[in-house]
Simulated assay, not measured.
Amino acid sequence: MPSFVKPYKFDIQQGNFITQQDVAKLQVGMTKEQVRFIMGTPLLNDAFHTNRWDYVYRLLQADGNAIQSRYTVIFENERVARHGGENLPVNPTDILGPDATKEIPTGPLPSENPADDIKEGESAVGGDERAPVLK
């Protein structure tokens, strides 16, 4: 392959993306369900250590740099006893860039809502007659 031709490379994300804003919501005494609501399902959940949840995140950037963070939550009697980690970004834009907080529209596309396109007295399958209604 000629040296001036370079393949396109992209960022590869793996794991749970956790920020300092997320862990600031954690409090000692929270239940597992409350932790799962805030931080998501842990990437590592060992069957032999059910009272330890590990949230691991790795970003392999297109330029070859790797960013990794890890956060651990320890439970005692089904409640958070302690938690801590390393290399957590303050907010999503620190690692993922300014598009990380961009709102994504979630409404239906016009083609996904065909009932709005049908006029009164018109059949959904074509022609002037409507399909029979089953009761």
Rank of each mutant, 00 (worst) to 15 (best):
L88S: 07
L109R: 15
G107P: 04
P108E: 09
N113A: 09
T101H: 15
R82P: 00
L96I: 00
R79S: 03
S111W: 11
L88W: 09
S111I: 03
T93G: 00
L109Q: 15
E103L: 14
D99L: 09
R79I: 00
A100H: 03
N113P: 01
D99P: 00
G85S: 05
P92A: 13
E78Q: 09
I104V: 06
E78H: 04
E78T: 03
R79N: 07
T101A: 13
T106L: 12
P108M: 04
P110A: 12
V80W: 08
A100I: 01
E86I: 11
G107A: 12
L109S: 07
L96N: 08
V80R: 04
N87Q: 08
G107M: 07
G85M: 00
I95G: 01
P92W: 11
P92G: 13
G107D: 10
L88P: 09
P89V: 05
T101D: 07
E76M: 03
H83A: 06
N87H: 03
N91S: 13
H83W: 12
P105V: 04
E103N: 11
A81C: 02
N77P: 10
A115V: 09
T93R: 09
G84I: 01
I104C: 06
L88A: 15
V90N: 15
E103M: 06
K102V: 06
E76I: 02
E78P: 00
E86P: 07
H83C: 01
N77V: 01
A100R: 07
G97V: 04
P105Y: 12
V80P: 05
P114Q: 14
D99K: 14
L96C: 02
H83R: 01
P105L: 04
I95N: 03
P110R: 14
A81G: 01
L88Y: 10
E112H: 04
K102H: 07
N91M: 07
D116M: 13
S111H: 13
G97M: 11
D99Q: 10
G107Q: 13
R79Y: 08
D116G: 14
P89I: 02
P108K: 13
L88M: 14
N87Y: 04
G85K: 00
T106D: 09
N77R: 04
A100K: 04
R79A: 05
E86D: 08
